[in-house]
Design a protein around this nucleic acid. Structure first.
Lengths: 333, 333
DNA sequence: TCCGATTGTTAAAACGATTCAATTCCCTCA
DNA sequence: TGAGGGAATTGAATCGTTTTAACAATCGGA
């Protein structure tokens, strides 16, 4: 059925070892043989069997990447950064979407383990340190992305979310807001918790400013909209005068809800700032202020570290932390 | 280093064949043996080697999916639909982003061929019919997504883009517009060409209505913005009074540009309608009218067809065409 | 002419799981 | 009691590639 090196070797009148050499170390083979084998390959339409190569090599040329949400441009940008960097070394990325569900996260890690991937990049949701240790014991390194590791034995590439939370709230206070609401969740997600922590710390430094916390079940537009509706329906006295959303999707949902009846106006009645600075933030009903993260660079850097650790497993883990950046647009001015 | 069936067999005191049976046909093995082998597996932390399984099986349990742009929510929704459906049969999806570049598209197809994937779903960019035929000759079926195949020997799942184009322009004309501009490109992308064709046909049926075509280099927010700036800078007499964008990303870019100086107002000065109805469309500066496509269902249906063809290669190819739906929002009222 | 080095090529042994024909064991029934 | 049958298990072959040790051929130098 399928054509193998054996067929190529027969056709070219050489041994299968030589065919392999032509593909992997052409310099070890005489020019005339290379040419002959190459012609046989073309004529037969031979395509290497990756499974066989992997079996022999002991590991695959793919990197597993698990992200929290494919619907979030922040993560797709991150994935793109990772993909580009991986391609430079001839590796490919297998993308898994955990969708903020522990079961799916585990499923992907099992899959990657079975595939003997080159390494794993993960934006963790559940508690997976055991699994990551197991992977490492098997020679598969892991790097956490968008998250500093609680377990410092793993490298991580992240953004200082506490600083980002501060940056956002500081800005809201600077523009004269006093009653701030934080919208986002679940708090089990470290990024959310950190952003909230930054917000809390900053509020604490400013007497007279209050912080209300509205927890959502997920970081999605839908959840944001629900929270926004709840805010809109309050009396003016009970409403916050500013909302800090845990990410831009939540922020867009909140914005939609506030805007819906035309009675509340952003930023006049309520200022709004998001997080991630996805492309769509600047195109929103009211162009949204946000906290920018270097998403593609996070992905690229994570791949770099992963490859270094794959090459030398004794390397000490590193924690790379990028600084976020405030982007001011109409929603807070 | 790594623990294999052989180790498990030794530990459990059975042959490797039995270990394999425990994993694949437990009913063929006595309960006590199953239990003993299972314990050995757990104790040793055995994980199946996928490469070896694949090598033996002849093909992998993954489906390759090539999409035009991961940054476009339409495609990530489609991918999610495909992933969910594939998971039901224990298959996984390997996602490749061609980024509207023929070279990348080819690279992914080569990769999938080497991986002996179960099948390929592709939203084609370049001319790949030869490659797809080759894949099929090797027993790898392919289904085109979001695109009717010019080559009817392949199945496809798509949306009637000509009808969608008509729907959009019909609506613009209904709301009193006469000078319509179509923004999008490259025209080499079939979806773009079809939407334009639908637009043209509709305009032709309405005397007095003109259609101008502005071609962009890609279907991105950036490209849309550039086109929007060009429109904004024209004199009022030369400006169109409506824009039909080939997709929502382009539309959002156009919207940003028109909105920028605050001199032009959507929909008052220029009406705007996009295509795809991505989540962000309703959250735009001016909530955008759009043409909705059942993105997740396209992905799911494509996987279904693919699996059927993989099971029975003699099946006649089918062309599934969904109908698009007009969604009216502020940008055209 | 012979030796050692160099270059090109080969044959065979992995890698780890699956599968299938062959074997063992035990039970039942005539 | 012995033949026949079913269930459980085994052993060996197989998938397609890479790798390595061994071998052959060629050549320059002594």
């Amino acid at each position: 059925m399928s054509v193998s090196v054996k067929d190529v070797a027969a056709r070219a009148g050489v041994s299968i070892g030589t065919v392999s050499n032509v593909m992997n170390r052409p310099d070890k083979v005489s020019a005339s043989t290379v040419e002959r084998v190459q012609r046989a390959i073309d004529e037969l339409g031979f395509v290497r069997n990756d499974a066989a190569r992997q079996l022999r090599a002991g590991r695959s040329m793919a990197i597993g990447l698990v992200i929290l949400d494919v619907g979030n441009p922040f993560f797709t940008d991150l994935a793109r950064g990772a993909e580009d960097k991986a391609a430079e070394s001839g590796l490919s990325i297998i993308l898994g979407n955990s969708d903020e569900r522990a079961a799916r996260e585990t499923t992907y890690l099992e899959l990657f383990e079975q595939q003997r991937v080159h390494g794993v990049l993960i934006s963790p949701f559940g508690d997976i340190t055991d699994r990551l240790h197991r992977l490492r014991d098997r020679g598969i390194p892991a790097v956490l992305v968008d998250r500093t590791s609680a377990d410092v034995s793993f490298s991580s590439v992240s953004v200082d979310d506490v600083a980002g939370g501060s940056l956002a709230v500081e800005h809201l206070i600077d523009t004269g807001r006093h009653r701030i609401a934080f919208v986002g969740g679940p708090h089990a997600i470290r990024q959310v918790a950190d952003r909230l922590e930054g917000a809390r710390a900053t509020v604490a430094r400013h007497p007279g400013v209050t912080l209300e916390v509205i927890e959502t079940a997920a970081l999605s537009v839908i959840e944001g909209r629900a929270a926004g509706v709840a805010i809109r329906e309050r009396s003016a006295a009970e409403r916050p005068d500013a909302v800090f959303a845990a990410n831009d999707l939540i922020a867009m949902g909140v914005l939609q809800a506030l805007n819906m009846q035309g009675v509340l106006h952003v930023p006049h009645d309520i200022a709004l700032i998001g997080y991630d600075d996805i492309d769509f933030a600047s195109a929103a009903v009211v162009p949204m202020s946000s906290i920018r993260q270097p998403s593609a660079m996070i992905g690229g850097t994570a791949v770099e570290i992963l490859l270094e650790e794959a090459a030398d497993p004794t390397l000490a883990p590193r924690q790379i932390v990028f600084q976020p950046e405030l982007v001011i647009r109409e929603s807070t001015s």
